[in-house]
């Protein structure tokens, strides 16, 4: 069996790297903004840190850092490697 597992981005531990599998559930404005930053299905994402009390998460993709809310991150399915 292959060891790939699909989880949501919010559940990924800081320090790990994942790949976006799907983001169809995402609000259109959010997915457009991510697309503007070059982030879409297939993009590799490195989880940097999570703010406390359910605050936003900070990630990096292709040398670009960005912040996104946790509820939105929950709607992004990623493949763990």
């Amino acid at each position: 069996m292959n060891s790939q597992a699909i989880v949501n981005l919010a559940s990924v531990a800081p320090g790990s790297t994942v790949r976006i599998h799907s983001c169809v559930e995402l609000h259109i404005l959010v997915s457009r903004r991510l697309l503007d930053l070059g982030i879409t299905v297939g993009s590799e994402i490195h989880m940097k840190r999570k703010a406390p009390f359910g605050g936003p998460i900070t990630c990096e993709s292709n040398g670009q850092m960005f912040g996104i809310r946790r509820q939105e991150a929950k709607k992004i399915e990623v493949i763990l490697r």
Binding site: H27, V30, L34
Partner: peptide, 11 residues
């Protein structure tokens, strides 16, 4: 209207 937040973080 839904609140949204995506921010680009510069070096």
């Amino acid at each position: 209207e839904k609140s949204m937040f995506v921010i680009e973080i510069p070096p």
